[in-house]
Nucleic acid binder design. Structure first.
Lengths: 233, 233
DNA sequence: TAGCGCAGTGAACAGCGTTCATCCGGCGAC
DNA sequence: GTCGCCGGATGAACGCTGTTCACTGCGCTA
């Protein structure tokens, strides 16, 4: 069992959350580059070096914030799944809708976690490698739903030895995922990501008044693909 | 006719390109945040304020660089189209392959133009609005190819009055594009973007050893969709 | 040849992340 | 009860950033 936190520990975690709240306020106000240690400290009535008692660097702070945001969007997605009926496909579609809704209502937060890796140092690859990372947990939620769907009504996927071999990391890391599930997870996930990212990043405004019909059409196309047991050659 | 450029003008354009070359060198070395006026000026043996004679701000400089990069990737894509055979579908697939190849071999450049909008000020929406922008020209190249393909062998697209209405900006801006072409352009473009962006941003390394088989499988799926004249309900 | 305009400079301002020496206050040990 | 330690917090400093401003030259043109 965990012993009761001491007074010091309580104060410490309170300060940590206050720092992250300040960071998020700045994020919402001016996007990822607006997050600055000095501004956070100013809002808290502290000085910037004090934050180094809690985070080793600004990058570490934003990484921690990104972790919280991953958890938040995952919780939202899981709530949508639980609120949907018993049909796994309907659940999956509502999960996708919840993901888009969160992204559209939290554009800056989405940009922070789903935009290019912050430092450009390949940190995200290493971060997603271990299953404990919040980002990996979000992906696993979708992957699990797709697995459930496949077990109920198997769908096809393109054959190909090269494809099958390249999927090895995904399949081994999440406990013997079938090839069809692995492929369709990545296909659906990249498709969802592209659609939502282009909407949030304003790369769609020139073509479309409201992206929602396009999103729903894509969702219908995806559902069609998941319903058909035909193997795509 | 245009008169011959004076000596001043020649020097000026030479300096402008030298500045942009320096910016691109920094971009390749450390990603978008590594671009700094002072570093560029240092490399050129100048002082930072001198650059303000050529660009009103750092944002304007990066925007100009982004324009060049858009032109570069568009030229690459067009070259791939011209190098492919006469089959419009084969041409389109090779265009997509060329796009991915450019992105993978120029990750920092791709990040600059396709990542989140630079200033977060919705600049990209306004930029893509007019057809003269390099980014819009890149999109138009793909849109044109899809139009050619459709005129040769019409493909279906999901019906829906809401979808049709939301596509109005795209269809009016590019001269009476059919609804099917408009929808499938956006569907294919967001799909291609999502796949390539996730690869470049290192969001795929945990799942796949080599993203190319996945890319080829997605390309085959897209080709299948473009070949079938069936209307998706 | 005189003057206008443009390229370029150096200093300065405000802000940033980060490091360092220093100080204070609460907690545990003797 | 007092001492010492350790964690929280500070202010100063370094080096970097974008940007502005007054100022100096040089080249072209009239």
């Amino acid at each position: 069992m965990t012993t009761a936190p001491t007074r010091r520990e309580r104060l410490r975690t309170a300060t940590v959350t206050e720092i992250k709240e300040g960071a998020r306020r700045l994020l919402r106000a001016g996007g990822p580059p607006a997050i600055s240690l000095r501004a956070i400290a100013r809002d808290m009535g502290m000085t910037a070096p004090a934050i180094y008692r809690y985070f080793p660097s600004l990058d570490a702070l934003t990484a921690a914030l990104a972790g919280d945001l991953y958890d938040e969007v995952r919780t939202t997605v899981e709530a949508a799944r639980d609120a949907a009926g018993a049909d796994p496909l309907a659940q999956l579609l509502d999960m996708a809708r919840a993901f888009r809704r969160w992204a559209v209502t939290h554009p800056d937060e989405f940009t922070l976690i789903m935009g290019q890796p912050a430092g450009g140092t390949g940190a995200s690859e290493a971060a997603c490698a271990d299953a404990g990372h919040p980002g990996a947990r979000l992906g696993a939620t979708f992957l699990r739903q797709l697995t459930v769907l496949w077990e109920g009504a198997p769908f096809g996927a393109p054959a190909g030895e090269a494809l099958e071999r390249s999927l090895a990391p995904l399949r081994s890391r999440h406990g013997e995922v079938p090839v069809e599930v692995g492929y369709l997870f990545l296909a659906a996930w990249t498709r969802l990501y592209g659609l939502v990212a282009m909407e949030v990043f304003d790369h769609l405004g020139w073509a479309v008044t409201d992206p929602e019909p396009l999103f729903e059409a894509e969702l219908a196309s995806l559902a069609e693909q998941l319903r058909s047991p035909t193997k795509i050659p």
